[in-house]
Amino acid sequence: MRMLLTIRIPHEPFNAFVRDGTIGSVMAKILEAVKPEAAWFTEQSGGRGAILVINLDDPSQIPAFSEPWFLTFNADCEFRVVMGAEDLQKAGLEAIGSKWK
C-alpha cells in the first residue's frame, strides 16, 4: 500500500549532525534503509521536514520506516494512505455514487 510519510525534524539533534559534518552520511543511512519511492525535504511548521512516498506491505513494517527518524532525530512521523491516478480510476466511484444517491 502506498503511503505518504511526513516527518517533522526538531532542530536538535539535527543541528549537531550538521555541525560535526556527519549529516550527509546519517541521512544516506536512513534513506538507504527505508528505500522511499520519492523523498522531498522541506520546511514544516517553521522547522525541518521531509515527505517520503513509501510502499507498506503490512502494518508491521511501520517501525522499520519510523524508528530511524525517531531514534536518530527525535522526529515526529505521520503515515497517510495515498492513491495514484490509476488507483482512483479503479476505485469504482461511479458505482459508489449510484448506491448513495
Rank of each mutant, 00 (worst) to 15 (best):
M1Y: 07
M3R: 08
L5S: 00
L5C: 02
T6H: 07
R8T: 10
I9V: 14
P10E: 03
H11C: 14
H11G: 15
H11D: 15
H11I: 15
E12K: 13
F14C: 05
F14Q: 05
N15Y: 10
A16F: 11
V18W: 01
V18C: 07
R19D: 06
D20H: 06
D20K: 04
G21H: 01
G21D: 01
T22S: 14
G24Q: 01
S25T: 10
V26R: 02
M27L: 13
M27E: 00
M27H: 00
M27I: 12
A28H: 02
K29W: 06
L31M: 12
L31K: 04
E32H: 12
E32D: 14
E32G: 11
E32T: 14
A33C: 02
V34W: 02
V34C: 02
K35I: 08
K35F: 00
K35G: 01
P36H: 02
E37D: 08
E37T: 09
E37R: 08
A38Q: 05
A39C: 07
A39P: 02
W40Y: 10
F41I: 11
F41G: 07
T42W: 04
E43H: 06
S45R: 14
G46E: 03
G47H: 06
R48M: 08
R48S: 05
R48E: 01
G49L: 02
A50G: 12
I51W: 03
I51C: 03
L52C: 10
L52P: 03
L52N: 02
V53T: 10
I54D: 00
I54G: 02
L56S: 05
L56A: 11
L56W: 07
D57L: 12
D57F: 11
D58S: 13
D58A: 09
P59F: 06
S60K: 13
S60V: 15
I62F: 07
P63N: 06
F65C: 02
F65H: 01
E67Y: 15
P68F: 03
P68S: 06
W69M: 07
F70I: 15
F70L: 15
L71M: 13
L71H: 10
L71S: 14
L71N: 14
T72F: 05
T72W: 06
T72P: 03
T72Q: 03
N74V: 11
N74K: 13
N74L: 12
A75H: 01
D76C: 09
D76P: 06
C77T: 11
C77N: 05
C77L: 03
C77D: 01
E78A: 15
E78M: 13
F79C: 01
R80T: 15
R80N: 12
R80D: 06
V81Y: 03
V81M: 08
V82N: 04
V82K: 03
M83N: 12
M83W: 10
M83T: 10
G84R: 04
G84A: 08
E86R: 15
E86A: 15
L88N: 06
L88A: 09
L88V: 08
L88E: 02
Q89T: 14
Q89P: 07
K90M: 10
K90E: 05
A91N: 10
G92N: 03
L93R: 07
L93G: 08
A95C: 09
I96S: 12
I96M: 15
S98E: 14
S98V: 14
K99F: 14
W100I: 14
W100P: 05
K101S: 14
